[in-house]
Design a protein around this nucleic acid. Structure first.
Lengths: 223, 223
DNA sequence: TGAATAATATGAGATATCTCCTATTTTAGA
DNA sequence: TCTAAAATAGGAGATATCTCATATTATTCA
């Protein structure tokens, strides 16, 4: 992890203005931090001392169960908060946050800002929207995972993550995210290839039948 | 649905003071409403015009998928909000809310309060806590449902809902809640009886081995 | 540049869970 | 009080998903 200082810090603060999230000035104690790919922004079980706001990059939220299984709860993207659960709740089991790409974020020390943040309607309004989206998203994922087989959820995931018609996510990560075994993921991927929805191209998969995948994914949506 | 007026209304407002949730007076346009068991407080897909706050009773949040499957997303209890998603988000697919017991709640019309609520730090702070709890809870349920078989989740549910050692939830509701088929629920319940964790007593189940169920449920918790 | 580690592959058998069917009992409403 | 609907119950076979074992590439890093 690197903390930007001087000119570099100023540049990021100017490029990603966040003054409109708060009704007071946050520049004084704010840090601009860079985490490398695979670095842990927050370690599971260790309460952070900062509220983070991601301005560039992508990260993953992990939790480890007692049986050793690991779940990738969700992704974190630009403009998401990290550490807001700990800001709000004294009792909270802290999840692990790992950078998926180089990630740059603002870090506001609880020490200096907690009290003011919790009294700032502007910030709290932002945060309620963020949290309501999070809750809604988790509820949707939860019910979908119970109501539909992998086939549908994987189709949706492929369409969401494919870049220019090419799907190339790491299998291990996808298993953690969709909560299925490595073996089963390969099963269903090869089914997709057999049906010619996808075509294997080295380690990547090329989408051949957008329409078919879309039909599978559409079923996830509520009426 | 019945709207309380006069003395009855005043009595509930006094018995369940909520002034401390807001920094302005909400009495003027507030309604006190009673819904009977099984009545729909909000119909799926129909945006409500009120923010509800439950003061007595218990309700269920439902969503219907395109394949006709119904998911019981979660329960709503006393001191929970309903309609907060619609208060915050203009775009939101409204879930159905059905009373599980006679339910009494306060109803604040968006028309009169929306603007002030969204500027009230006291209320927003309450709401962020409520929403963070909701998001955390859904995330936990999601990962647990993927990481553990029904056996564990059912043991947890039985312990949570049993009253004086007797479990007597309706099977159909439990299926919707745990996202499993009726048939499979009966399978696992009868396994519990075979192992003597439970003893069937007419339509109810008596907990015989608290300890064993507890071990199954404990596994759900994160490290 | 080797050796260790991570990622990809695949087979085979086990288990969790689902679907469909049918029957009985309970509950609620005319 | 009778009847329709809901809830409970269990059989049988299908399918989704898991575990374990093993092999073959890639990738990383000392």
């Amino acid at each position: 992890m690197e903390i930007y200082k001087g000119e570099k810090k100023r540049w990021y603060l100017e490029k990603h203005p966040i003054a409109h999230h708060f009704s007071f000035r946050v520049e004084e104690f704010i840090e601009v931090r860079e985490y490398q790919r695979d670095e842990w922004i927050i370690q599971e079980g260790m309460r952070p001392d900062f509220l983070f706001y991601v301005i560039e990059g992508k990260a993953k939220i992990y939790v480890t169960h007692q049986n050793g299984k690991v779940s990738l709860i969700n992704f974190i993207n630009e403009n998401d908060y990290i550490g807001e659960m700990e800001l709000l709740n004294d009792e909270y089991y802290t999840k692990g946050i790992q950078a998926l790409t180089k990630t740059i974020c603002f870090a506001l020390p609880f020490l200096h800002y907690r009290k003011r943040l919790l009294e700032d309607a502007k910030f709290l309004r932002e945060l309620t929207k963020f949290l309501s989206g999070k809750a809604t998203h988790m509820a949707a994922k939860y019910t979908q995972s119970l109501a539909f087989p992998l086939e549908n959820r994987l189709a949706d995931f492929i369409l969401q993550t494919a870049d220019e018609g090419i799907y190339k996510e790491k299998h291990v990560m996808v298993c953690d995210y969709l909560g299925i075994s490595y073996r089963h993921l390969l099963h269903v991927l090869s089914q997709f290839c057999e049906k010619n929805y996808l075509q294997k191209d080295g380690r990547n998969f090329r989408i051949k039948q957008y329409q078919s995948l879309n039909e599978l994914a559409e079923v996830l949506k509520s009426k």
